[in-house]
Design a protein around this nucleic acid. Structure first.
Length: 402
DNA sequence: CGAGATTCATGTGAAGTATACCTTTAGGCTTAA
DNA sequence: AAGCCTAAAGGTATACTTCACATGAATCTCGTA
């Protein structure tokens, strides 16, 4: 047994890795150049450039589907601006916040609190009035006499959850500032986002707008080739692999992040199998694995009540296969589940909201339908691939100690 | 037969409540002069 | 008298509950052809 293990480990070293630099394929990797986004880079740069003359740049709004390079381009440009600002002794700060993160920036209070924390200020998670937290933040900002650039990623999620007042407050902030100035970059996956917000907010928040088009399959291929040169040793990738990755991602609205992830995970799978080259067959496995990991990750990080709800949905789904299931069924099962693990159940009202949130997360599909005489409800189905359900159930059971 | 009323099961908005946390304030105790 | 600690008072954000009303198509009702 030990013998085997030593052999394995020895071999592992000897064989070396398929990867030269795996980081090049990870989602937080920032390449030196961003291909096919020259226009967007120039536009963003042109809009933000006034910073370097200590002038407040226009607020900017960026739209585009996931994996079209919004975040990457924004970071790319702002990094450069940050660098040049530093060289020229311009007092500039750039804060990047992802509004989707639960319990970080998903309410007005938490958003501002997080900004204050970026300044190194200790602020409590709750208890203070919201204007108080604004004051703390603004005072700190005034003290430092600077230009502040706030990047709000996935801002549509925030507004969806808490309404558009936040945006109004944010845009109004400048009028309260004497020494410093704030500019906001909003990034949204939802192309129709601004249709539903207050026109006053809209005009001041999106003084400038940039739309990021999806990549097409050929562009994706080029991107993949470029990155794979950095990431893998020579001649590791078999013919057709890149093409297939690109095709898969192009099918999903040209999502470059996905394409890169497919390639990376394929590589990892090949490596784990002891293969010396990446075969086309690994891509399909990779796609499955990615989806599985995504779901597992989401599920595992949900609060308890969300887990119980999800568990109930899974249970109901598996009990009556190929029949549609409704809120009422889920709620009944939910109550049972609660009594099993000794937790007082929430009301149906609340459960309704939780189901809606789970839908937003994309792990279930819930559509409000009217069954005519038989009332109105949500038609719920799982958005988890068939093969992963058992695994998810296990995770849920373990964390709920069922 | 068809237009309009009815109905059901739950969606959904608003307001209220519980909890956990915050600051302020008043009182009480200690201490030093 | 001044200083310090503590506990109560008064305030907030968040997650949840309560209450009440909204929804919308299948079904029912009833007048009419």
């Amino acid at each position: 047994m030990t013998r085997q293990l030593t052999d394995f480990l020895q071999n592992y070293i000897k064989k070396g890795s398929l990867f030269k630099d795996k980081k090049a394929l990870q989602s937080n990797y920032k390449p030196k150049a961003v291909p096919y986004r020259g226009d967007q880079i120039n536009q963003v740069a042109a809009i933000l450039a006034p910073i370097l003359r200590m002038e407040k740049p226009s607020n900017l709004f960026i739209y585009g589907k996931t994996g079209t390079g919004k975040t990457l381009v924004t970071k790319h440009v702002t990094e450069n601006i940050r660098r040049i600002a530093k060289e020229n002794k311009i007092n500039l700060k750039i804060f990047y916040l992802n509004c989707k993160l639960k319990r970080v920036a998903d309410t007005e209070y938490r958003l501002i609190a997080q900004l204050a924390r970026e300044f190194g200020e200790e602020v409590p998670a709750t208890g203070l009035p919201t204007d108080e937290i604004y004051k703390i933040f603004l005072n700190k900002l005034e003290e430092e006499k600077m230009i502040l650039l706030i990047i709000l990623d996935e801002i549509d999620q925030l507004v969806h959850k808490t309404g558009d007042e936040i945006l109004y407050n944010l845009t109004r902030l400048n009028s309260e500032l004497k020494e410093s100035e704030i500019s906001i970059i909003g990034i949204s996956n939802d192309l129709l986002f601004t249709d539903n917000i207050d026109p006053r907010v809209k005009s001041s928040l999106s003084e400038e707008e940039i739309v990021f088009p999806p990549y097409n399959a050929i562009q994706l291929q080029k991107i993949l080739k470029q990155r794979s040169k950095l990431a893998f040793h020579e001649k590791i990738i078999k013919e057709g692999v890149i093409e297939k990755c690109a095709a898969y991602a192009a099918r999903e609205h040209g999502d470059a992040r996905r394409a890169l992830e497919l390639l990376r995970v394929s590589g990892e799978l090949a490596e784990r199998k002891g293969d010396t080259r990446i075969e086309v067959k690994y891509i399909d496995q990779a796609e499955e694995k990615i989806e599985r990991d995504r779901v597992v990750d989401i599920v595992a990080t949900q609060p308890k009540q969300f887990k119980i709800t999800l568990h109930s949905i899974v249970t109901v789904c598996s009990n009556n296969t190929n029949q549609s299931i409704f809120t009422g069924d889920v709620y009944n099962t939910y109550k049972e589940t609660c009594s099993q693990c000794g937790i007082t159940p929430l009301t149906q009202r609340r459960l309704s909201d939780i189901i809606a949130e789970l839908d937003m997360l994309g792990i279930i599909n819930a559509k409000v339908i009217s069954k005519g005489r038989y009332g109105r409800t949500r038609e719920i189905s799982l958005a988890i691939p068939e093969g992963n359900i058992t695994q998810i159930t296990t995770i849920l059971k373990n964390s709920l100690s069922l």
